[in-house]
Design a protein around this nucleic acid. Sequence first.
DNA 1: ATTATCTTGTGAAGAAATTCACAAGGCCGT
DNA 2: ACGGCCTTGTGAATTTCTTCACAAGATAAT
Lengths: 212, 212
Amino acid sequence: MKRVADSTVRRLSLYLRYLEEFEASGSSTISSDELAARAGTTSAQVRKDLSVFGSFGKRGLGYDVADLTHRLREILGLEREWRVVIVGAGKIGEALAQYRGFRQRGFSIVAVYDSDPSKIGTAFQSFTVGDVRNLAEDNRQQPADIAILTVPAEAAQQVVDEVVAAGVRAVLNFAPVQLQAPDHVTIKTVNMALELEGLSFALTNAETVRSA
Amino acid sequence: MKRVADSTVRRLSLYLRYLEEFEASGSSTISSDELAARAGTTSAQVRKDLSVFGSFGKRGLGYDVADLTHRLREILGLEREWRVVIVGAGKIGEALAQYRGFRQRGFSIVAVYDSDPSKIGTAFQSFTVGDVRNLAEDNRQQPADIAILTVPAEAAQQVVDEVVAAGVRAVLNFAPVQLQAPDHVTIKTVNMALELEGLSFALTNAETVRSA
DNA sequence: ATTATCTTGTGAAGAAATTCACAAGGCCGT
DNA sequence: ACGGCCTTGTGAATTTCTTCACAAGATAAT
């Protein structure tokens, strides 16, 4: 099977979000044109994205909303619950630990860790902060699938090594560094300063150059 | 002047980050190869990215670290301080309000707003939460350049309209919705659930399909 | 049953981004 | 001053992504 572009997967997620809204609003069928309008893309793009995984529509009619919703959930792996641990009990970790958007989508935060002795054992949302050194052992009972890293940049690589050793195969990294991991581990980095710098560039070059 | 790709700008930011590290470590010159290795790309890519803005290197020698650092800061518009307001005094807003990475890079948080009467007037990091309805007036004195939105999805579009009316031309949006704004306003959306779904896809399709 | 009207699925065309590959310089040691 | 060794800057080739455009179905009305 051929490799699927990251941009395609992102758009599928978007489509799913708008489909769910559409489902709530009652209509049972939707065209690639309508979906494209909501997701901010073109109908051809929608159809191409879906065609990677099969043909889900009916010519002349469009897509059955409930059916396509289900198929997209399946494709994205959202039919099951994913066990997520947060490493780094700072403000960002706290914000993510209580973020409803995650649980709503089947991502269940199961534990929060830190390496700072002054934080370990303290209450943190509905969790008690664990010692990151117990992560591997805790994982032996019921392994986590995904680790969210909200640790300082200097500590991030070591934490990745630890969670990978503990069996985690996907990492969402909020530390502003490039991380190394074996091929079978997927890492996504969210770098908020980078996003702001993109805005700075756009503001600075507004008259001459327009960012794509 | 031709349009600059978003991906190019992102990489320039990365290069800048690694150049700064390199600068601290003492070396005065760096090759596109070394820079590429750190940023996780290729030397040809580094040279192409830089060539959009000029030729900053010396053949046979590489780039002067201090000079290139300066040029990149100039290109990205980081030589000045940007005034940033946060709208939405929830956990994520709080985390961002105290995030050191922003100030370090010249992004100065100047105020925090909310629309919830129970939050307005309360202390929030080193700020007092303001009423979002005063934003336009506050902005008349010393306008903010960038607004960070950490409000619920339902409220986001209205807040965008308000900050745009108040003169803000760049928005970093954390609400999981597609926002509309005039052409002269740049919006970047960070959708954390989307990132997790990308990981879910990768985990689900690990054996058959590999995400790019 | 036939016609008119939709909308999908998809090859082909086009555009954009990345990688290749090499001439043009520049430095250093002798 | 010359030869050997680096590394840039950049057209050209390649790859990847997006858009076009239309045949193939499907529905509905008469």
